[in-house]
């Protein structure tokens, strides 16, 4: 009988994104059943210790040259072969650009239902897994059940806690026996676009600016606060549309959906589409000169005032606190 969870993870040169460990910890918590980690690419073996540390009972490495460059159809076919070997009850994928591309393809091939971007996966009273996922970008939450024999979940980053288990994962050798020349869609190049910028969906603190910042060069004021806090930068949609900041900053229903511990909304009015994308934040801090701005209704803390005076003062206070700590 199918049992256990297959956690499908991407890695680069042995480095696994934190969401990989979050998924393993979650899978381990949902025992009984073996937790198997599957990872691809050059250097995959180097992730063995860290995968075991966070909850993998066994690991499958597809590190041959066929898997050095991502192919949605090739990798999906390979995952299906591993599923045949491991026979898991469920599969986890990260709800990242990589996982969201691969998970539905695998689900389709397996004839398994997929719940995307889950914030919760739990064991139900009937022994099966169930999940909670945001819909309407977080304006509501759906508790879902998947009725197919095997189930696929993609897991939103930055929600699940990680727990170290210190196990030594066994290596399971599975060769999907695929011929890479049959892979159709192939990645031929990767362009790094942001350099040092922290990824918004994984950020613990976000400083986000809106039209209240008034001009592209004024984002320096926010950058200074972000650097004092060790935060990532984000924005409302109009300022990204204007080209004041890169498109990748855009947060909201039609941009990124974020779930940091603290979200600073600076010069952002709090339109419903923006609020949708930040509702998963633990704390929302609003800085706005208009006391009636809707953002204050969504916030935990707020300052009514001119951002050009408040933000530099706040950056200074944060530096004081960090110095004393």
């Amino acid at each position: 009988m199918a049992s256990g969870i297959l956690v499908v993870i991407n890695q680069e040169g042995g480095r696994v994104r934190r969401v990989g460990f979050e998924m393993l910890s979650l899978a381990q918590k949902l025992a009984p059943g073996q937790v198997t980690a599957l990872t691809f690419g050059d250097g995959a073996e180097q992730s063995k210790d860290s995968l075991g540390q966070y909850g993998a009972d066994q690991v499958v490495f597809l590190s041959g040259s066929a898997y050095h460059h991502y192919s949605s159809d090739g990798f999906a076919d390979a995952v299906v072969k591993v599923v045949e070997g491991v026979d898991p009850e469920s599969l986890f994928f990260p709800a990242t650009a990589w996982g969201k591309d691969l998970a539905p393809r695998v689900a389709g091939l397996l004839g398994a239902g997929l719940a995307s971007d889950c914030t919760e996966v739990y064991r139900r009273d009937d022994g099966r897994l169930g999940a909670v996922r945001p819909i309407y970008a977080g304006k509501a939450f759906a508790r879902v059940a998947i009725d197919s024999p095997r189930q696929v979940y993609s897991i939103r980053p930055n929600i699940q806690p990680v727990a170290e288990t210190q196990r030594a994962a066994a290596v399971l050798a599975i060769d999907p026996g695929l011929d890479a020349s049959q892979f159709q869609a192939r990645v031929v190049a990767v362009k790094e676009s942001q350099g040092e910028q922290l990824e918004l969906t994984e950020a613990d603190i976000i400083v986000s600016g809106g039209r209240g910042v008034k001009a592209p060069e004024n984002f320096k004021v926010l950058e200074d606060l972000a650097s004092a806090l060790g935060a990532a930068m984000g924005s409302s949609r109009p300022v990204a549309d204007e080209g004041w900041v890169p498109h990748s900053y855009h947060i909201g229903q039609t941009g990124k959906v974020v779930s940091p511990t603290v979200y600073f909304a600076v010069g952002i009015s709090g339109a419903i589409q923006h609020l949708a994308g930040i509702s998963g934040s633990k704390y929302i801090v609003a800085i706005n000169s208009d006391p009636d701005a809707p953002i204050f209704k969504a916030a935990n803390y707020g300052i009514v005032g001119d951002l050009f005076k408040v933000v530099p003062a706040l950056a200074e206070e944060v530096r004081h606190i960090k110095q004393d700590a």
């Binding site: 398994a112 239902g113 997929l114 719940a115 169930g130 819909i135 977080g138 304006k139 509501a140 939450f141 759906a142 508790r143 879902v144 059940a145 998947i146 009725d147 197919s148 509702s279 929302i284 609003a286 006391p291 204050f296 209704k297 969504a298 916030a299 935990n300 803390y301 707020g302 300052i303 009514v304 005032g305 001119d306 005076k309 408040v310 003062a313």
Partner: peptide
């Protein structure tokens, strides 16, 4: 295959602490 069992709204945030006065 994927069946919605229940819909809920996000929990309300407690009333904000709003600070005014000198920046």
């Amino acid at each position: 295959w994927v069946r919605v069992e229940e819909l809920t709204l996000p929990p309300e945030r407690p009333a904000a602490k709003i600070l005014t006065g000198e920046p």
